[in-house]
């Protein structure tokens, strides 16, 4: 069986629409979203009908908890004043444009999902199994740490998002972590496509992971972001594929791969 995992929609309803269609075309039976529906892009309310119509099972991200409970900020945990400045613009816009019904829906999402498919035990979370807004970067996460986190869930495979960059690792102990990537903005790789993850599980629990690039109408998204008065820096990321904000939380290795 095939399962599709989306992360970090960041209001990018156009990419979500394209990803749902792509996952259906590839015969994904179940669709999951690991949270952070809002941020960054335009028209937050356009994301929710797509998720509901496609029957996407959703986990609550830190952004969803914040919007759902109308908290003062997004709880992304940036430490740099410039990053916090842009996070503020994005959060205020998203909070203002998310309807009360959708806020209530976000508020009620589970913080994690545990499920079993073909004998494979999955734990789905947003940041890490122990904390919604913990960044698990590829270059700053040891195997021993992953083993500790995964062990506590009782799962064979843990899937998360939150960092914006997709990666996977199987530890020496045979446990696997997958960061499913995000649909909201490109992966700081100079390409305009965004990423989701397909998990193929065979009988007996053997599995393979595929990261899938999604092309969508990014020019339209950029236009709509401009029309909504969102920062030019955000638009540049959509058009160029390079991150321009939220850079100071990146470890050096991930930062070096980008342009800024």
């Amino acid at each position: 069986m095939k399962l599709a995992f989306f992360g970090g929609i960041y209001n990018n309803y156009l990419a979500l629409e394209a990803a749902i269609a792509d996952a259906r075309r590839r015969d994904a039976q179940d669709l999951f979203c690991l949270g952070d529906m809002g941020a960054f892009g335009p028209f937050p309310d356009r994301v929710f009908p797509l998720l509901l119509e496609a029957g996407v099972h959703c986990v609550q991200g830190n952004y969803d908890e914040s919007i759902g409970n109308e908290l003062p900020d997004c709880q992304c945990g940036y430490t740099d004043p410039r990053d916090n400045h842009f996070a503020r613009l994005s959060y205020d816009y998203t909070l203002e444009h998310t309807s009360p019904d959708n806020r209530r829906w976000l508020q009620r999402l589970p913080g994690a999902i545990d499920c079993d498919r073909e004998g494979l035990r999955l734990h789905l979370c947003h940041g890490s199994p122990r904390r919604t807004n913990e960044f698990l970067w590829e270059s700053t996460t040891s195997d021993a740490f992953l083993d500790r986190l995964i062990d506590e869930t009782g799962a064979d495979l843990v899937l998360g998002t939150h960092t914006g960059l997709h990666w996977q690792r199987r530890t020496g102990q045979g446990r696997t972590f997958v960061n499913v990537g995000v649909l909201g903005r490109p992966a700081n790789d100079g390409r305009t496509s965004v990423w989701y993850t397909l998990l193929q599980i065979q009988r007996g629990g053997r599995f393979s992971v595929e990261f899938v690039p999604v092309q969508y109408d990014h020019r339209r998204l950029a236009r709509e972001m401009q029309q909504e008065g969102l920062p030019a820096e955000f638009v540049e990321t959509i058009e160029s594929g390079w991150w321009t904000t939220c850079l100071e939380v990146l470890p050096s290795r991930e930062r070096r791969r980008g342009r800024h």
């Binding site: 900020d73 945990g77 994690a112 947003h126 807004n133 939380v249």
Partner: peptide, 12 residues
């Protein structure tokens, strides 16, 4: 670093 209270996850 992680900041704020974003939480210990409750499972669905």
């Amino acid at each position: 670093q992680f900041h704020g209270q974003a939480g210990e996850t409750d499972r669905g």
